[in-house]
Simulated assay, not measured.
Amino acid sequence: MSTEKKHKVKNIFDDISGKYDLLNHLLSFGIDKRWRKKALKLSGLNKDSVLLDVACGTGDVAIEAKKFGVEKIVGADFSHNMLSLFNKKSKWIIGNNVQMVAEQMPFKDNAFTNITVAFGVRNFYDIQQGFNSFYRVLKQGGKATIIEFKMPKNKLFAALYKFYFKRILPTIGGFISGNKSAYTYLPESVEEFDVKVDLIKLLQNSGFRKIEVYNFTFGIVQTIIAEK
């Protein structure tokens, strides 16, 4: 099952990569940029940071991190097409990206001060193994910052959110990208993830002890910062 999910997710993101940025900004009404900025600010990134951006996609987190003064950035993604776009958008870090999965990182122990993963953890085929890798490659005192969707607690807002997520988003996303199944997978994966996965527990299992949780935009997005 893990191998099947790994390749399914890779194929989805390879296929929609050309429209990925447009749809991210359109379907989130542009708020996704604010989510990344707030999360990176909470992480305390600065010119001395050495950042690994996991599931980096087309490089939006890396570009935002650059504004905080970060110069040493490695982008990592399993989708070749996403990494190609990452190169084009982030020319100042060409050569520093790696095609890989989070569960199997080709890096030395204690190599990074920070790891970020924005809206990618639910696509890991083994989240616990991924977090074990995070812990291994982070320096002591280093931080893993996870930005991820979640289902809001307010019942009325949750109902509206589900309607948008399950009816409107797949239709618009499918029409523009030409791949409706990709934008059906998104809401399905978020709801399943929210019910079945306890990120805090998994991070603790990997050895992280200081863990902070922040909710954005009525609780539809969470940012978790775990320190080694």
Results as ranks from 00 to 15, higher is better:
T3H: 12
K6V: 11
H7L: 11
V9H: 12
N11E: 15
N11W: 13
I12F: 12
I12D: 07
D14H: 10
D15E: 15
S17K: 04
D21W: 10
L22Q: 10
N24Y: 09
H25P: 00
H25V: 14
L26E: 13
F29D: 13
I31D: 01
K33M: 08
W35Q: 02
K37L: 03
L40F: 09
S43D: 02
L45E: 04
D48E: 15
S49R: 03
V50Y: 04
L51P: 03
C56M: 05
V61T: 10
A62K: 06
E64F: 05
K66V: 00
K66C: 00
K67E: 11
K72V: 00
K72H: 09
K72Y: 10
V74T: 15
D77S: 02
D77I: 00
F78R: 00
F78I: 13
F78N: 02
S79D: 06
S79A: 10
H80V: 14
H80A: 13
H80R: 14
N81Q: 14
S84P: 06
L85Y: 12
K91G: 14
W92C: 00
I93L: 00
N96W: 04
N96F: 12
V98A: 01
Q99L: 04
M100K: 12
V101C: 09
V101R: 10
Q104I: 15
D109H: 08
N114P: 06
T116M: 11
V117W: 05
A118I: 08
A118Q: 03
V121C: 02
Y125N: 07
I127T: 05
Q128L: 05
Q128E: 11
F131L: 05
N132P: 01
L138C: 06
Q140C: 09
Q140V: 15
Q140K: 14
G142T: 06
G142C: 06
K143W: 08
A144W: 10
T145V: 08
E148K: 04
F149C: 05
K150F: 11
M151H: 05
M151P: 02
P152Y: 13
K153S: 14
K155G: 02
K155C: 08
L156H: 15
L156A: 13
A158Y: 13
A159K: 12
Y161R: 09
Y161V: 04
F163Y: 15
R167Y: 12
R167G: 01
L169R: 07
P170A: 03
I172F: 08
I176W: 11
S177K: 11
K180A: 10
A182E: 10
T184D: 12
L186M: 02
S189M: 04
E192A: 11
E192D: 13
V197H: 04
I200Y: 07
L202V: 08
S206Y: 11
S206C: 05
G207S: 01
E212V: 11
E212H: 09
V213W: 07
T217K: 03
F218W: 14
I220Q: 08
Q222V: 14
T223A: 06
A226W: 13
E227W: 09
E227T: 15
